[in-house]
Amino acid sequence: MNDDLILRQTDRGIATVTFNRPDALNALTIEMLTRAGDVLETLSADQSVSVVVLTGAGRAFSAGVDLKALQAAGQDVSEGNVGDALNEAARRVQHLLETMPQATIAKVNGFCFTGAVEIMLACDIIIAAEEAKFGDTHAKIGLRPTWGMTQRLPRRVGMMRARELSFTARTIDGRQAAEYGLVLEAVPLGALDEHVADLAAAIAANSSGSIAAYKDLYARSENAGLDAGLSYEAETTYAISDVKQRIGDMLARLKG
Rank of each mutant, 00 (worst) to 15 (best):
K244S: 14
L121I: 01
S48P: 02
A213R: 13
A72H: 14
S44F: 09
N81F: 07
L121H: 00
A15T: 14
K244E: 15
E179Q: 02
L70Y: 15
R253Y: 11
G135F: 03
D23P: 00
A60L: 12
L251M: 11
L97G: 09
A191E: 02
A57C: 14
G148M: 07
A186T: 00
Y214H: 12
R246Q: 15
P101N: 15
H95M: 09
E131L: 08
E235S: 00
V187Q: 01
V39G: 12
E164L: 06
Y238N: 01
S207P: 12
D38Q: 15
E79V: 12
N20L: 15
K133N: 12
R59C: 10
G56K: 08
I125L: 10
P145H: 09
V53E: 07
N206T: 15
E179W: 01
A252K: 05
V51T: 13
R91S: 02
Y214Q: 15
Y180C: 05
D84M: 07
K215D: 14
P22Q: 06
L25W: 06
T236G: 02
F111W: 06
A106V: 08
H195M: 10
L40G: 13
D173P: 04
L7G: 10
L43W: 04
A36N: 09
V157H: 07
F61P: 01
L121W: 00
D173V: 03
Q102D: 13
S44Y: 04
H138N: 06
E164I: 03
F61E: 04
R91A: 04
V65N: 00
A73P: 08
I6L: 13
S78M: 08
V65E: 04
D193H: 01
D46A: 08
T137E: 04
A27E: 04
E222S: 10
A162G: 12
I126N: 01
L226C: 06
A177R: 06
S44Q: 05
R155Q: 06
R8D: 14
A204G: 13
D242W: 06
I172N: 04
K244L: 12
V157C: 09
L230T: 00
Q245E: 13
V108I: 12
A162H: 02
